[in-house]
Design a protein around this nucleic acid. Structure first.
Lengths: 192, 192
DNA sequence: ATATTCTGTTGATAAATATCAACGTAAAAA
DNA sequence: TTTTTACGTTGATATTTATCAACAGAATAT
């Protein structure tokens, strides 16, 4: 029984998977099939791998002192997941990252990222573009968080990420928007 | 009289300034001395330059339909300023970026950034590190925005950026935190 | 088949935060 | 100097959003 990706890797380690320009360790998380949470990263661990989602859906969240989850990131195919701070500073993360749908990922360590970036220009280019995309998305999200009401944030979200609505339950979207599920339910009633 | 940095460059263009590994165009904004706002970037323009702050303090904000400023970024020495989305996609920005203190910056275009990154490994490395730092800061800010109350956000801010308190007025900090200046005033009263 | 859990909705009420208005002080402008 | 303007504070009130509780349907577990 493996609960975390680090254990999981044991059984998949070094399974080569060609994806674009690079081959790396592959991981598979199956929360649906096995009916339980599948952690890619747990609070307190150091984030040794960044994951690139080939197929699936994941969420990253912190837990407050009342035990409430706050979703800082929802991710689908072709996005990276991981905690940049923990990854860069080798310090324990405050986040949990788990698969929502059955998910297939490519895992890569920091040293490998740096090495591949030097060896393979296309890899470097791809990583830069994805970083840029994330950076832009984060900037927008900050602007929305400080400028918009709950209703405006929801409308902005629907415009920006219509796919997320199909693939994540509403209470997760509410958490992502920084509101309660009840408030989201009421906002949606107004907007339909 | 030049109102925007693009005009300003005219008088400073190609003044070489050695700063670490690279030399670039230098710009100076003087809101204090000249007693008026000094724009580095204005809503509607395309962000052709990213600026590296050598000395000074700046803020980046959007303006909502009621005409209220929402500060998405406060920046001091050794931070980059600019709108990544406008910069990357060559589309009009929704932000204004202005100097608060008298500010000295290095300006660089996107093509020059890409070229320098190839030519000078140390430049590439430096840019990556600053990107990473920004990315980590943004992630924290998003987490704070969706998880924390006004009071918690303020306390977190004081811990994370004590310098900002000294160099920006309170109403700007309130805006940065996504609360009104009155609420910040009351929060501070509680915490002293 | 039945029970349980997950998800979303609704109502009543409480808490957090915004808004509006007024005021005092200090700095900057005339 | 005198006048403005910018900044911060405080009080009264309004609005937004959270909390708590109950309920219903659908999916999942036993």
């Amino acid at each position: 029984m493996f609960k975390r990706i680090h254990d999981y890797i044991g059984s998949y380690a070094k399974t080569p998977l060609s994806y674009g320009e690079f081959e790396q360790i592959k991981a598979v998380l199956r929360p649906k099939s096995f009916k339980r949470k599948q952690y890619f990263l747990q609070k307190g661990e150091v984030c040794h791998y960044f994951g690139f989602i080939v197929k699936g859906a994941m969420r990253q969240y912190s837990v407050d002192d009342k035990g409430i989850e706050h979703i800082v990131q929802l991710s689908l195919e072709n996005w990276w997941v991981g905690d940049r701070e923990s990854w860069a500073m080798s310090k324990p993360t405050i986040y949990n990252i788990v698969a929502w749908e059955d998910t297939e990922m490519l895992l890569i360590t920091r040293p490998d990222t740096l090495r591949l970036a030097q060896e393979i220009p296309a890899f470097d280019e791809a990583v830069r573009m994805m970083d840029e995309r994330r950076s832009i998305a984060n900037q927008k999200r900050i602007n929305a968080a400080i400028s918009f009401s709950a209703e405006e944030r929801y409308r902005d979200f629907v415009n920006s990420y219509p796919e997320f609505l199909q693939r994540f339950p509403q209470h997760m979207i509410a958490s992502y928007l920084g509101i309660t599920k009840e408030t989201l339910s009421r906002v949606r009633k107004q907007n339909n």
